[in-house]
């Protein structure tokens, strides 16, 4: 199990950041992703595998409005 923005989400083995964002339907392009407080750079989204029990913050920039 992992936590995404405070909500429990099933852990999927070898799932990358890009795949997770797609699974939880976070399609907004201006996001900052932190896994266990470490910033994951955008260039690493498609290669970084999420460890089990991770605490993930997907910070959507305000934009809009």
């Amino acid at each position: 199990m992992i936590e995404v923005n405070g909500k429990k989400v099933d852990w999927v083995e070898n799932e990358t950041v890009s795949q997770l964002l797609k699974r939880v339907r976070y399609i907004f392009p201006l996001v900052v992703v932190k896994i266990n407080d470490k910033v994951i750079l955008k260039k690493d989204f498609s290669t970084y595998s999420i460890p089990d029990n991770s605490k993930i913050a997907v910070i959507h920039m305000i934009s809009g409005g």
């Binding site: 923005n5 405070g6 976070y26 913050a57 997907v58 910070i59 959507h60």
Partner: peptide
């Protein structure tokens, strides 16, 4: 203010 993401999505 446009706080929907910050509040509802980011839970920040």
């Amino acid at each position: 203010a446009w706080l929907i993401f910050m509040d509802m999505v980011n839970n920040a």
